[in-house]
Design a protein around this nucleic acid. Structure first.
Length: 486
RNA sequence: CGGGGUGUAGCGUAGUCCGGUUAGCGCACCGCCUUUGGGAGGCGGGGGUCGCAGGUUCAAAUCCUGCCACCCCGACCA
């Protein structure tokens, strides 16, 4: 384990170093693929379980739809095609021929209809919804799936954009527009809770502009987050799909009065990209800082007894501490490997474990433990009979991580009223910028071209005609957040 | 697909220009001993079709030809 690059030297390199050295993930053999290693997967599992509970508690059922989608499905919704056509993995054959140890594709096995590996599942889900929805009694239909999807990206980065990634995608069908919109917004609130209360990541939430909207959606709400390099990361989206997929797949229902009606849809998802956000929001030059609620290990115990004095009594003391913590439902790990204490301290800081407990002969004699916090490096002793204070400390770390990140985002978000101030702020500070916008694609594109900043989301609609677009000077339609984004 | 670059042990590299000992070094790995409260040290050891194929030569990591892979910048994309 070598020293990781400093954030200030090269933020990208720091990011990659942390992931590889903390054992979260490794590169797969096919370009753009990632192996999620046990430590990283355990982190993902904790996030997944927290979110899954909220999804189920709000009336959604989990299901699983196939990885393979007939190519023709993708053609049915015009905008959806455009959005995903250029990044699809396509299955064209079903056989290989083995000749002297080398394999070639058997041209005889060419498929009648080519198969797409799902980049997202709206099409196959709405194909099935057509079979399942005929009556008002079938609505609302609310399903979710945990799955892998494939998007053949040209530039990839661990967790942030990999060719294949894990996510959750929810798909719902509703009788009315109002109900579907309500669902879309309910999900946004679930995501907000996940990000703020579990991942300790502050959010900016709003609608996407026309240009940034999901392919096939009437309205996209996004969860935007600020990384430590002040770039924005879209960390989750919830789409109101209107009747686009319902009509593309010819789904209708009959109401009580025997009339035919269109079906309204939503879809929403968050992915392993969240892990990338977590790393870049909380991490520092020592490595990760994982919020206690989702940390694979919440407390690591490092026993220090080189000369093995009172070996039996000492190790039973260590075990006793572990047992007490486990009883408090704290995920605890004893690091008894044959490495030096200093090495272990650095290793667990790199891995972002919220609390380290050091137990040496001093602590053993005094019936206490030394506690060291990852978030602020505070170090102090706690008597063994007051060990349940650890729970309080974990909560305090959770809060502290959120507050730190919130302060950072607030301190790096500003409001400007002229384009000169806009470019100036970007070049000097690269902040999130709130500004008025006239609502046109043209303005958005020109600003992107000139500054590389994009509209992350619309935070407010503007009613006041004295507010002007910072670029065109026309009456503003919306107050939006601009930023350079991942 | 344009422009640039790189392929030598698990990782990072020296050697390539100017062909010539057994391809060297650091990290990691294995063994023994000493160590252990902020990334321990000593000694010993294992591991290489020098990206692939062909050619030139008494002799190729090194020169020539072809191919392949990967990286960076752009384009594309979240």
């Amino acid at each position: 384990m070598a020293k990781i690059t400093k954030q200030s030297d090269n933020f990208s390199k720091w990011y990659t170093d942390v992931i590889l050295d903390a054992d979260l993930a490794d590169y797969g053999p096919v370009k753009g693929t990632m192996v999620v290693k046990p430590y990283g997967f355990s982190l993902w599992t904790n996030i997944r379980d927290s979110l899954n509970k909220m999804i189920e508690d709000s009336g959604h059922d989990n299901a699983y739809f196939p990885l393979f989608i007939p190519k023709s499905f993708l053609e049915k919704e015009a905008k959806h095609v455009e959005g995903f056509a250029k990044e699809c993995a396509v299955v064209t054959h079903s056989k290989l021929i083995s000749e002297e140890g080398s394999l070639t594709v058997d041209p005889e096995s060419k498929l009648e209809e080519e198969i797409i590996v799902r980049p997202t599942s709206e099409t196959i889900i709405w194909h099935m919804f057509k079979k399942w929805i005929t009556s008002y009694r079938d609505l609302p239909l609310k399903v979710n799936q945990w799955a892998n999807v494939v998007r053949w990206e040209m530039r990839t980065r661990l967790f942030l954009r990999t060719s294949e990634f894990l996510w959750q995608e929810g798909h719902t069908a509703h009788a009315t527009k109002e109900e579907a919109m309500k669902e879309t917004l309910e999900i946004v609130e679930i995501y907000r809770t996940l990000f703020e209360d579990y991942l300790a990541i502050p959010t900016i939430i709003g609608r996407k502009s026309n240009l940034e909207r999901f392919a096939g959606a009437d309205e996209t709400f996004s969860i935007e987050t600020m990384m430590r390099d002040k770039k924005a990361l879209q960390a989750g989206t919830s789409h109101y799909l209107g009747t686009n997929f319902g009509s593309a797949f010819d789904v209708k229902f009959q109401s009580k009065d025997n009339k035919e009606h269109p079906v309204y849809a939503t879809s929403w998802g968050v992915s392993t990209r969240m892990v990338g956000a977590l790393i870049m929001v909380h991490g520092d030059d020592k490595g990760l800082k994982i919020p206690p609620k989702i940390a694979p290990t919440q407390v690591v115990i490092v026993p220090i007894n080189p000369k093995k004095e009172n070996s039996e009594e000492f190790s039973s003391f260590v075990m006793k501490v572990e047992k007490k913590l486990t009883h408090l439902d704290i995920r605890t790990h004893i690091d008894d490997l044959d490495e030096s204490p200093g090495f272990k301290f650095n290793k667990w800081e790199l891995k972002g474990v919220p609390i380290r407990i050091e137990i040496g002969l001093k602590e053993f004699d005094n019936m206490e433990v030394t506690v060291c916090r990852r978030d602020n490096s505070e170090k102090y002793q706690i008597q063994i009979d007051k060990i349940d204070e650890i729970s309080t400390i974990l909560q305090s770390i959770q809060d502290n991580l959120f507050n730190d990140a919130k302060t950072f985002m607030d301190n790096n978000t500003c409001t400007v009223s002229s384009f000169a101030d806009f470019t100036d702020t970007l070049s000097k500070n690269n902040q999130f910028i709130k500004a008025y916008w006239d609502g046109t694609d043209e303005t958005e594109l020109k600003i992107k071209e000139k500054t590389k900043a994009t509209i992350r989301c619309i935070v407010e609609d503007n009613e006041d005609s004295s507010n002007k677009c910072i670029f065109s000077g026309e009456t503003a339609k919306h107050l939006v957040v601009f930023a350079k984004a991942y």
